[in-house]
Each structure stands twice: as C-alpha cells, then as structure tokens.
Simulated assay, not measured.
Amino acid sequence: MTSTRSSNTLLQDIPPQLLNYFEEEDFKTTTLEKVKLTTGFFNFSGLIYLKKGRFSFSLPQRNLDTLYSFIVEQNGWFGGLTLMQLPHPFLLINEIEPVELLYIPKDRLTKIADAHPLIYKWLLNIAAHNIPQWLQVPIIALSNKNIRVLYCLATLLPLNKRDSSLIEIDASQQKISDICGLSRPRVNQVLKKLEQQELIKVQHKKIIIQSTTALFKLLDEANLCFYDPRE
C-alpha cells in the first residue's frame, strides 16, 4: 500500500488548518477487499476517499432488489454524516472499476474530530456536496427504464470527456443492471434501441458512446432537479 501523503489530489480538498494533521497521520490507501467493502452487503460507518476507480452504493429493498445506486467518483469523498447520530443502514456495494481508497473507521475518525473540531465542519461540507446526487437517486428510481439506463450511462461517462464523441465506458450490461436496479433483459432492450439509433455500440463489457450530444438530449425529459450528470 502507498501512503496518501504522495496524493496531492487527496490533500487539496482538506482545509489548510487540517493539512498538517492529516499529513502526520499514518493513513494508507487500500482496496475494497482489504477493508471488507467487497461486492455485497456492508453496514457502512466511516469515511471514504476514492483515489482511483469508481464504485456504487445502493439501499436494497426487502427482496434484496435495488432501486438505483449512488456512484462514488474518483477523487470523491463519502461518509460525511458518519459521526452524526443517524442509523447506519446496510448498503449494497458494487465495484464498477478497480479502486484504491482511503478508509477511516468511525471510531478513529471520532478521535481525530474531537481533537480538531473543525473537522466536523469539513465533514458537513462533504455531506452537502453529496446530497444533490443522493436526492436525485429516488427520482431516477421512479423513472421509466429508458431514463434509468440513460442516466446511468451519463453518470458513467468520464468527467473530463463528456463533450467528446466515441467515448468508451468500461461497464458490462450486468454492471449497468446492478446500478439501475433493472433486470438484464430490460437493460438490454434499452441498449438495443440506443444502438439502433446509432447512439452507442455494445461490445463485450464495454459500451461505446457515439454521440454524447444526442444521448444527453434524450435526458431532457427526465426530472433532474437535484443533480444533472450532463453538467
């Protein structure tokens, strides 16, 4: 494992008042498997910084089906409300791309925050940053299958290439099914329709976006009042 001290991306989001403290701490980057955040159910309680890759969280229903997922992007933080007296539900975790992350368990984070109360404010800022996407999740979950798949594709596009054409997404139909909370046959129906419109090409564990402009246009009918992945 490599030290997070070498990660400028990690440190740039931390308030200057806390920078020295975080540099002195022996935080290490790790993987989902090593912190037991493997694909499956996890009673989440802690803070995550995603250094590389992407993965999703979802709240399963009683029948273990998912409605829709919250995607954690590279360089993103998750768990800003972990120190608040809130229920910590079981989450279904799905690794979209191989990840490297920083994970700070709640007990350790509590000690750090008690010693440096400004961290509580910083954690609330992390939560505030994630709230729009969280609020958007149930709206998309109630949308039709076309909107759910389109929203998923838009979210999976690399952030720095959303204005380009011929963008390759490393995601199988099963991954999209897991994120959308739809069966593979229903996902396949939508993807085939988009392929017939020459907007995408479906390959083995990959999807090629041929026109982001046309694809994004189809999301105009979606209710994206809290979070718009096209922006």
Results as ranks from 00 to 15, higher is better:
S183P: 06
K217D: 09
D228I: 13
S45L: 00
G80K: 09
V190D: 09
I104H: 00
N75D: 15
V137L: 11
A115M: 09
P117F: 12
K28D: 10
Y68N: 14
Y227M: 06
F70E: 00
I71K: 13
K145N: 10
L83H: 03
T82L: 01
I139H: 04
K206R: 15
L59V: 09
A127S: 09
S58C: 05
Y120S: 01
L219N: 02
W122A: 07
A222G: 02
D13E: 01
L215Y: 00
L59H: 02
Y68T: 13
L224C: 02
Q174G: 01
I207T: 14
Q189W: 02
S211R: 00
D107Q: 10
K175D: 15
T155H: 02
P158F: 12
K36F: 06
L81D: 01
K121L: 12
L218P: 00
I139T: 08
L11F: 15
F44E: 03
L118I: 15
P185E: 11
G53V: 05
F90T: 04
E195G: 02
F70K: 05
F41H: 02
E97K: 15
K28C: 12
N223T: 08
E195R: 08
E231A: 09
T39N: 14
E24T: 05
T30R: 03
L191N: 08
S69F: 10
D220I: 05
E100I: 00
T82E: 06
R54Y: 01
E231F: 13
T31L: 11
G79L: 01
P229N: 08
N63R: 08
G40H: 03
E231T: 15
L10P: 04
D65I: 11
I200A: 12
V190K: 10
P105E: 06
Q210C: 09
L159K: 14
L153D: 03
S7G: 06
Q189V: 03
C152M: 01
Q196D: 13
Y49V: 10
L150N: 04
N125F: 05
Y103V: 07
C180F: 10
D114S: 04
N130C: 00
Q174L: 15
K121M: 06
T29Y: 12
V190Y: 10
N63W: 10
K36V: 03
L37V: 01
L92P: 00
F226A: 03
G53S: 11
K106G: 00
L218R: 07
I209H: 07
R5Q: 08
R62P: 01
E221A: 15
L150T: 08
E24G: 06
A222P: 05
W122S: 04
M1Y: 07
I48L: 14
L91V: 09
I131N: 10
D220K: 10
I179T: 08
I169V: 11
P229G: 10
M84K: 11
G181Q: 11
N8A: 13
P60T: 04
I112M: 15
W134V: 14
Q196A: 14
Q173D: 08
N8G: 11
T9Y: 05
L37R: 05
P89M: 06
I179C: 11
L215M: 06
V35D: 02
L123W: 06
F55M: 02
L101G: 00
Y68M: 13
